[in-house]
Design a protein around this nucleic acid. Structure first.
Lengths: 142, 142
DNA sequence: AATGCAAATGCAAATAATTTGCAAAAACTG
DNA sequence: CAGTTTTTGCAAATTATTTGCATTTGCATT
């Protein structure tokens, strides 16, 4: 948990710190409301708009990534360092892909399309090992 | 323009056909409202809820992919076959990545995480060649 | 430690995308 | 072309997210 440094001109508030810390602790990117509820539970006083406002600011500053996942209609927010993940379609568990395959293809993409590449995000969906074994217990016919 | 076959039990309506055809013609995934407006322009009678309902159905049937792009707050819909793209952060132009790098990493991902992989989507953002040259015209200092 | 000012917060109200209920219209079946 | 089912359009409802404004808080400077 390396403390994340806020950009110039922004103040350190307990709400802001709590949000960042929660995002650090969590593997998966979270919905704004989850963040709000989790922090309330922990006894931190904040409002949902504070959560949104902070996430928005952090996103604009590049510290946080906002993403919508398959079949979800609300945004998730996570630290910019965790932006490639596997999602189980059964239990919705999220697993971070850490050595991202993408780097190897950056060059190829630059050549083919001529873009300067600033960033990327990859979402992979499937069935996680746990759900797979639960499934095969119920029906041996696969 | 290979005609797309509707799933069993669904009727062929002019609205539904028009939506699918428009998605085939378009390189980039579109917002529901764009689809609505473009088709209205073409003289096709439909409502926005019809667009949403069809896209929803098509998505559930796997023919269409719904995705939210970086810094956008409304969904885009595109044919399932076109789900990896490059987005220019300046002009918002979208370019399809056609020989998707991902396939080569599927195996690796399966091994490492034990997921059965059903699908994926990749969004890459950067600056397109056009915007790049416009930029360097304005300031030669890069 | 007190002061002053900008930044941040909470609350309630506003906005905007998407969804839904329902009656009428269109598709397909025989 | 009559009967049944699906689809549509419209308007109203829902839900995530944003915003205005008055108040509070963080922090730099006396």
């Amino acid at each position: 948990m390396a403390k994340i440094k806020l950009p110039e001109g922004y103040k350190t508030t307990k709400q802001r710190q709590a949000i960042l810390q929660l995002l650090e602790e969590n593997v998966a990117p979270m919905h704004a409301e989850d963040i709000y509820l989790k922090l309330k539970e922990k006894g931190i006083e904040l409002s949902l708009s504070t959560v949104y406002r902070n996430l928005d600011m952090l996103q604009k500053k590049g510290l946080v990534v906002k993403a919508y996942m398959l079949n979800e209609d609300k945004a998730r927010f996570g630290l910019a360092s965790k932006k490639n993940y596997l999602v189980c379609q059964e239990c919705k568990k999220i697993v971070i892909i850490d050595n991202c395959p993408f780097e190897k293809f950056k060059e190829e993409l630059i050549e083919v399309h001529g873009f300067d590449i600033l960033g990327h995000s990859i979402e992979v969906y499937g069935i996680c090992p746990d759900c797979k074994s639960k499934k095969s217990q119920n029906s041996e016919d696969f």
